[in-house]
Simulated assay, not measured.
Amino acid sequence: MESSYMENYAILRNIRNVLQTCILGKTDEINMMLTALLAGGHVLLEDVPGTGKTVLVKALAKSIQGQFRRIQCNPDLLPTDITGVSIYHPKQETFIFRAGPVMTNILLADEINRATTKTQSALLESMEEHSVTVDGETYELPKPFLLFATQNPIDFEGTYALPEAQLDRFMVKLSLGYPDAASELKMLQSQQQTHPLDLVKAVTDAQRVREMQEQVKSVHLDDAVADYLVAVTRRTREHPSVLLGASPRATIALFHAVKAYAYIHERTFVLPDDIKALTPYVLGHRLMLHTEARINGATVDSVLQSILEQVKVPVRLER
């Protein structure tokens, strides 16, 4: 194996260790964040306030020396507050583009579901095209670009549900949840003198992250595993409890995600277990169940679990 791969694997281990010092006991969630970063996807973090979502995103940005911007979403936020605006300069007699916070490597849209749907939709172009268009001019975003959006549960006061088209553009949806008792006690002890973010040091830079993203593309996906992946997403459209199944965009997102997941686990090939591990995170927020199914106790997680149990797993792979 090339030495650059080994160096990058070591860097990923160091990034993971840095993040684990900020948020204790959340190894799976940290792996999902790194997966999205290397797959070029975006992350939706849904949880109650105070569980460490913002701290974790800031720590990731510091660890890769990435530009970081934060937007606090509220009903008064305008689309131009995100994308930027062209301002007329009298002396130069021309319009000058003043970039918004979206021009960064890692953008944190805090409490995105407190912004109006019009403002939420301003993020769609940047999420899909990695560019913004203002007054007819298109501006490319820095590379890598990764959006982390946090949201409170929908039953919280003053929130707007994200439209399905925008939900479908998030590669991964996570929920950190409350820490266990041991982790919460250790958190108190670690913050007696200083905040964990103050101790975060840069492990790598944006250029190395771009190199890793290119290496992820060469991770091998066997034809049998690809068939398995497609079978899983297609079964979500046929399940009797599902009103809206996974879109073709979801299939592509899962394809990119499993390759990045294999890479962060220091493999050059994808296993069926990678698909099983990522399915709840990548497909869960894209499904909509029938009302009758929900009344009868069905959940998205239970439906996905039944699908994974039904779809035949390939046993012989070419590596």
Rank of each mutant, 00 (worst) to 15 (best):
V43E: 01
K186T: 14
P75W: 12
K259P: 08
V270Q: 14
N74H: 15
G52Q: 02
L108A: 03
Q215T: 10
A293K: 13
A99M: 15
L199V: 08
A165N: 12
Y228P: 10
N31M: 09
P179T: 11
Q305P: 04
E125H: 00
E2P: 03
Q120F: 00
V303E: 03
V242C: 15
R286D: 07
S86Y: 14
T150L: 09
E318P: 01
H285L: 11
T119S: 02
E266S: 15
N31D: 15
R169T: 03
I307P: 02
D274K: 08
D198M: 11
Y261M: 13
H239A: 06
A206K: 07
L147T: 07
T94P: 06
S183T: 04
V230L: 13
Y160V: 12
Y178F: 03
L108W: 02
C22G: 06
R286S: 12
I307T: 02
I71K: 03
R267H: 15
Y178S: 00
N105F: 10
D301V: 00
L147C: 09
H130G: 14
T251S: 14
L229S: 13
M127C: 09
A224N: 08
V311W: 12
P75K: 15
L60Q: 04
R69Q: 14
A122R: 03
Q20C: 07
L12R: 00
L38F: 09
T83W: 13
G25R: 12
L12K: 00
G50A: 05
A99W: 15
K217R: 12
D223R: 07
R234Q: 14
N14W: 01
Y5F: 07
M32P: 09
V300M: 07
H220A: 09
L44H: 11
P314G: 10
K312L: 08
A39D: 03
R294Q: 13
L24A: 07
L244R: 08
V203F: 02
V232A: 12
T138G: 09
I23S: 08
E93A: 08
L244P: 05
C22L: 05
E184G: 04
L221P: 08
R267F: 15
Q310I: 04
E128K: 10
G136Q: 04
D205Y: 05
R237L: 03
Q67N: 00
A277S: 04
F68P: 02
V282W: 06
K143P: 11
E7Y: 06
V315E: 10
R316F: 10
N152S: 13
V303K: 01
R70C: 08
Q120N: 00
L108F: 06
A181Y: 01
K201D: 04
G84T: 13
A61S: 05
G158L: 10
R114H: 05
M1V: 14
R294D: 06
V57M: 07
V132P: 07
